[in-house]
Nucleic acid binder design. Sequence first.
DNA 1: CTTTTCAGTGTACGCACGTTCACTATGGCC
DNA 2: GGCCATAGTGAACGTGCGTACACTGAAAAG
Lengths: 231, 231
Amino acid sequence: MESCENRNKVGGYRVDHARTLTQVSEVALGIRQERKRRTRQALLDAALRLLDRSSLAGLSLREVTREVGIVPTAFYRHFASMDELGVALVEESMRTLRDMLRDARRTRVDDAIRGSVRIIAEQVLAHENHFRFLIRERHGGVPDVRRAIATELRFIGSELATDLARFPGLSAWDTEDLRMVADLMVSAMLGIVTALLDRPRDPDHVAEATRVGERQLRIIALGTAHWRSPR
Amino acid sequence: MESCENRNKVGGYRVDHARTLTQVSEVALGIRQERKRRTRQALLDAALRLLDRSSLAGLSLREVTREVGIVPTAFYRHFASMDELGVALVEESMRTLRDMLRDARRTRVDDAIRGSVRIIAEQVLAHENHFRFLIRERHGGVPDVRRAIATELRFIGSELATDLARFPGLSAWDTEDLRMVADLMVSAMLGIVTALLDRPRDPDHVAEATRVGERQLRIIALGTAHWRSPR
DNA sequence: CTTTTCAGTGTACGCACGTTCACTATGGCC
DNA sequence: GGCCATAGTGAACGTGCGTACACTGAAAAG
């Protein structure tokens, strides 16, 4: 019970801001705001790390603060609840996903599929935690988070549909059918991401999943090219 | 605090077996075993009902027993833990899914797609809880449950692949490509189920999801028909 | 230099949880 | 008819949780 003070504190703070601060040139924000931002980010990172093993509903506020090294009550300086942190995590993860799609959209048209799948594989490996979080919480136990993900996914579908409309053979298609194909492609991509996430450390598995995913999208493209909508 | 005894008990038991028992002709099992089976099933049903709102990881043993009307400790007469109940729930739900696929397999070949999608819609509406459970826990927080679902899904994929092999145009295909198409179809079906589960009480939404799902599978079939595997 | 603001501290609370244990009463069996 | 076996009981425990509250000390504002 005794002698447990200043274990790993630095000037009364367990989180060591002093060192990292000086080497950063984000002078625009005051020292104070910058520190707050860093702690907030540390909470998000810690949560994402812990979410590798459990789900958001099974993750406690105390676990997250413990991981960061702050006292539980300090959590409320940044989020009103774990659910709110979850929604923030959706935003962060979705930024990753959107960046990925922006990259994919820039690939050359003559082999858009191969390029897209390659980029998916790269990004999933580089941001495994973000994708695992999205896939898991998409149908998870927190309604707000579920809604946020569903909304983003729907948006991605409609963006893809307008992209498809620019292809020569598809310019005459009606909106509904474009959307139908776009949603199918999203389903397939989610399947590919799931397969990649299954064993992301095994290069053989990743290569195989990439190969298969590429062919699956090709099947869809081929089917689309031969499609004639029933009246 | 006082006078709270025998509220809804029957002969010392809160669960009323006596009435329901007589009208059942499962005489093969003794009264005792039959009662145990019923309570076990009541636990599974209660869990499935509660899982509509939360996820398995966020569901407590006490909640489930409260719902059934037995004392928490009695839970252990049936399952060693909530995780074990989860695995039992996977088995039950998978039986539903397998029945669905068996039905789908029996439909006439000339319009297998329309028939299959209709059966999917029917079954998802009839056993909403089972499908919601599977979709949710597929990527959920309980490893044992995740594994059980992944295994079953893989099995379904390989069964579908052997079914495909019987189609005239596909008899020459190699196993790997058949599997690739089968997995794509599974991805699409999961997407359809997800869409149906989104607003299962809205008949318009269900009809629309069915229509779209049918077309998506048709796109895949069309793509498959025109596919020529790269060397 | 003084005052204000506020991110993080530390204690304390009430609550729900999983699990233990000794128990009770009923169905099954000789 | 009497003796097991066992499904369900009820009290009790230790633990971890979310949250309230008064606090501290350094950055920001004056």
